[in-house]
C-alpha cells in the first residue's frame, strides 16, 4: 500500500495532533519495529493478523503514543469492538477516547 492512502482516514484530533499525524506516527512506529519502509505498512490491515504487533507490542505502541500525546489512553476502550484493528481504526478509536 502506498503512502497516499493515508488520506482515507483523515479526521481532526484535539490536543495538538491531527488524526492524519497520528496515522503517520503509528505507521512510522510499525515501520521502525518491523524494519520495513513506511510505504510497505498497510494502514488498513489488521495489526495482529498482519504481524505488525503481538499482544505485548500493541501495549508498547499505544503507551508510546500516549507519551507522545501526553495523555492517558484507555486500552480497554481501544481494544473493544468487532472490527479488525487497523492503524486507521485505532486512530479513530483514539480520537473517540480523547
Amino acid at each position: 500500500m502506498d503512502g497516499g492512502q493515508a488520506f482515507f482516514c483523515i479526521g481532526t484530533m484535539g490536543d495538538g495532533m491531527t488524526q492524519q499525524q497520528m496515522v503517520a506516527w503509528l505507521r512510522q512506529w510499525v515501520a521502525q519495529h518491523q524494519q520495513v519502509p513506511i510505504e510497505q505498512v498497510d494502514m488498513d490491515a489488521d495489526l495482529f493478523a498482519q504481524g505488525y504487533v503481538d499482544s505485548l507490542g500493541i501495549w508498547r505502541m499505544v503507551f508510546e503514543l500516549s507519551q507522545q500525546l501526553n495523555r492517558p489512553l484507555d486500552m480497554d476502550a481501544l481494544l473493544q469492538g468487532e472490527d479488525a484493528l487497523s492503524i486507521c481504526e485505532l486512530a479513530k478509536r483514539i480520537e473517540a477516547a480523547l
Binding site: 505485548l56 499505544v62 508510546e64 500516549s66 507519551q67 492517558p72
Partner: peptide, 11 residues
C-alpha cells in the same frame, strides 16, 4: 521490563 507499557497505561 516488557510490562512497563502495560503499567504505564494503567497509570
Amino acid at each position: 521490563p516488557q510490562t512497563r507499557p502495560i503499567y504505564g497505561l494503567l497509570g
